[in-house]
């Protein structure tokens, strides 16, 4: 956990030095993005999700795609589904919060096959959906291919 934080800070400072623009251009849209869009559409019943209220914390650069720490925070959510839009199968996990859940937050570790977006879609108490995205650059992919 500590190494990731340190890495994040150092790279952030580096990116301030002028390569920020280039990095945004490289990110692009991964090839499997449409799979994720389909999965989100299926989850929300076609209603779509608005970006806002919820947040997702992931390292900007993951050296090892086999275990990438991810934290989601979605106040007022009843369920959160995580997607990784560059993985062979985009679904990652679904968290359903029960009566005794103190906060709508959870942390776990996930596999990412390549540099991609991690997307969290939260179903709120009123039935609406919110989403958040985090781009993670992966140095060594985690699908073992």
């Amino acid at each position: 956990m500590t190494t990731h934080t340190r890495q994040f800070n150092r790279r952030s400072i580096l990116s301030l030095g002028g390569c920020a623009l280039a990095m945004t251009a490289v990110v692009g849209t991964p090839a499997f993005a449409s799979l994720t869009d389909d999965a989100i559409a299926a989850l929300t019943g076609g209603a779509g999700a608005v970006e806002g209220g919820i947040s997702i914390t992931a390292p900007e650069i993951a050296e090892n795609g086999n275990t990438v720490p991810v934290e989601i925070d979605a106040p007022g959510a009843v369920a959160i589904t995580l997607f990784a839009d560059g993985n062979p199968t985009p679904s990652v996990a679904t968290f359903k919060f029960g009566a005794l859940s103190a906060s709508r937050t959870a942390s776990t570790r996930i596999r990412l096959s390549t540099t991609q977006n991690v997307v969290a879609v939260a179903e709120m108490e009123d039935g609406s959906f919110q989403m958040a995205k985090a781009n993670v650059k992966v140095t060594i992919g985690g699908c073992g291919g």
């Binding site: 934290e71 199968t89 996990a93 029960g98 959870a106 942390s107 776990t108 570790r109 996930i110 990412l112």
Partner: peptide, 19 residues
Amino acid sequence: NVIDVALEPAISTNPYFQF
């Protein structure tokens, strides 16, 4: 119930959860 998680293959070896 506190939390109910559905896991897919994209969860890492030795699944870890904090809540």
